[in-house]
Deep mutational scan, measured.
Amino acid sequence: EDEVKKIVKRLIENGVDDEQIKEIVKRQGVDERIVDKVLKELK
Rank of each mutant, 00 (worst) to 15 (best):
V38M: 08
K6E: 14
K43T: 07
D31S: 11
E3M: 12
V8A: 03
K22Y: 11
I12H: 08
I21S: 00
V30N: 03
I24C: 03
I12M: 15
L42A: 05
D18N: 09
V35F: 07
E41K: 05
D17I: 07
K6W: 10
K6Y: 08
N14W: 13
I7P: 00
E23I: 13
K26I: 14
K37A: 09
Q20Y: 07
R33C: 05
E3K: 08
V16F: 15
L42V: 08
Q20K: 13
V16E: 05
V16Q: 06
R27Y: 06
V8P: 00
L11E: 01
D31E: 10
E13H: 08
I7T: 08
K22M: 12
E19N: 10
K6T: 10
K9I: 12
V30A: 07
R33I: 10
I21R: 00
L11C: 01
E23D: 10
D18A: 12
V4C: 03
R33Y: 13
L42W: 04
L42E: 03
E1V: 12
K26W: 05
K43H: 13
V8G: 00
E19I: 11
V16L: 15
K37R: 13
I7A: 06
I34F: 06
E1C: 06
R27N: 11
V4W: 07
V25N: 02
E19V: 10
I7H: 05
L42Y: 05
K37N: 06
K40M: 13
V25P: 00
D36G: 04
D18C: 06
I12N: 02
L39R: 03
K5G: 03
E1Y: 15
E23P: 01
L39V: 03
D18K: 09
G29P: 02
I7S: 04
I7L: 15
V38C: 04
L42G: 02
D36T: 11
R33V: 10
V16D: 03
K40V: 07
E32S: 12
D31F: 05
L39C: 02
K22Q: 04
D18G: 07
K6D: 11
V38I: 15
G29Y: 03
R10C: 09
R10D: 13
D2Y: 09
V16Y: 15
V16H: 14
R33H: 12
K5R: 15
I24Y: 09
K26V: 14
R10N: 13
K5S: 06
K9N: 07
E1G: 05
N14P: 00
R10Q: 15
V30P: 01
I24S: 03
I24F: 09
V16G: 02
I24E: 04
V25Q: 03
K37Y: 06
L42N: 02
L11A: 02
R33K: 13
K22G: 02
L39A: 01
V16S: 06
D2S: 10
K22N: 02
G15T: 02
R10P: 03
K5L: 09
E3R: 09
L39N: 01
D31W: 05
K43G: 09
V16T: 07
K9F: 08
E3C: 08
G29Q: 03
G29M: 03
D18R: 09
D36R: 07
I34S: 03
E19S: 10
L11Q: 01
K9P: 00
I7D: 02
V25E: 01
D2L: 10
D17L: 10
L39W: 03
L42C: 02
D17R: 10
I12S: 04
V30D: 01
K26A: 12
G29V: 03
V35R: 01
E19R: 09
Q28S: 12
E41A: 10
K6N: 12
I7W: 15
I7E: 06
K22S: 03
E41Q: 11
E23M: 12
I21C: 02
D36E: 14
D17E: 10
K9C: 08
E3D: 11
L42I: 10
K37L: 08
K26M: 15
L42F: 06
V4S: 01
L11Y: 04
I34M: 12
V25C: 13
D2A: 12
L42M: 08
D17M: 10
E41P: 00
K9Q: 14
L11V: 00
K37S: 06
G15M: 05
V8W: 01
V30H: 13
L39P: 00
V35Y: 04
V38H: 02
E41L: 09
V38P: 00
K9Y: 09
I21N: 00
E13A: 14
V38D: 00
E1H: 12
K9A: 12
K22P: 02
K5F: 09
K9M: 14
G15H: 06
Q28L: 15
I7N: 04
V16K: 09
G15D: 04
I24T: 05
Q20M: 14
K26E: 05
D36L: 13
V30M: 11
R10M: 15
V38S: 02
V30G: 06
E13M: 13
I7M: 14
E3W: 15
L42P: 01
K37D: 04
K5D: 02
L11I: 01
K40A: 14
R33W: 15
V25G: 03
R27K: 13
Q20C: 02
V8H: 00
Q28M: 15
E32I: 12
Q20V: 11
R33M: 11
V25S: 03
V35H: 01
D18M: 14
D2M: 10
I7V: 08
I7C: 06
K37M: 09
I21L: 04
R10F: 15
V4I: 14
E3P: 05
I34N: 02
I12D: 01
L11K: 00
V35P: 00
K26N: 05
E19M: 11
K43L: 11
D36Q: 09
N14G: 09
K37C: 04
E13R: 11
V30K: 04
E23C: 07
D17T: 14
G15A: 03
E32F: 07
V8Q: 00
D17S: 15
L42Q: 03
E13D: 12
D18P: 14
K37I: 07
L11W: 03
